[in-house]
Nucleic acid binder design. Sequence first.
DNA 1: GTAGAACCTCAAGTAAACTTGAGATCAATT
DNA 2: AATTGATCTCAAGTTTACTTGAGGTTCTAC
Lengths: 149, 149
Amino acid sequence: MTLINAADIDKALTVGEVAERSGVAVSTLHFYEKKGLIKSWRTAGNQRRYQRDILRRVAVIKVAQRIGIPLAEITDALSALPDGRSPTARDWKRLSARWREQLDERIEQLTMLRNQLSDCIGCGCLSIKACRLRNPYDTLSEEGPGPHF
Amino acid sequence: MTLINAADIDKALTVGEVAERSGVAVSTLHFYEKKGLIKSWRTAGNQRRYQRDILRRVAVIKVAQRIGIPLAEITDALSALPDGRSPTARDWKRLSARWREQLDERIEQLTMLRNQLSDCIGCGCLSIKACRLRNPYDTLSEEGPGPHF
DNA sequence: GTAGAACCTCAAGTAAACTTGAGATCAATT
DNA sequence: AATTGATCTCAAGTTTACTTGAGGTTCTAC
């Protein structure tokens, strides 16, 4: 149900162009499309064409991946974006706020791990039952019930 | 060429025991053995037996995994450990020092990502060619040539 | 001496995120 | 018209880190 006007078509990008400009392989773009992360329309000759907007979208996907968000979740988040128009700053803000939290969490976990690692360096305390490194669930369980990835 | 004395055998652990006490599945222990991460000897009835030391070793593997080190690299690092005796604090220190660096690096990367994300929240700058989030290689390339995982 | 739990091996399956390959079509150029 | 490069589809392969299953053996306990 996406509306496309003449101007958009005019500026349309081919897969090759998108690949080069976004830095991902053509096969990856095919793959993302199959997974529902991005979309395109076709020319009379069945070739993909993308709105210029695709470049930002792919950039967003790459950022999310760097954070460590799995593609399925990215698909999910992206599907919450408005259909048919380019996401606005506000849309992007919602997305990034959610991911920002996950990033914070991830950083905190790694930082805790680092502290524990420092405590343990050279002390051999991994052999001790009470070692915090050895029993990470002491800390994880503080997050409450439910799955802790 | 590992020497095992009567006392060790005395305190030997079965796979089931190791699994329960280390928190990994029996199948995972089989798997780790095949990959060369851990080892065992066999009873007359062909069942695995482990030195008590296995528990620390598995703990070390799990810590390394939390840092994000792939198993192959862990195997590599562990193979540098002395054969036939339990690793000492010094051995463990060498290992953790190396991994500590990777952890630091990972944390720094994520922290940079977070800062950039903050800069970008709500500003829509992902659409701008110069956006640092969009062009992470500006920063990655500072790490020098070679593969950047 | 027999049931049931714990083990064994080996092959195959799983999930994520892609890549590769084969065979065919499209588009731009000479 | 013919060549060359870009695309297309669809299936199958790749890597990491395991898990699952089938079919068979060993241990422990009653």
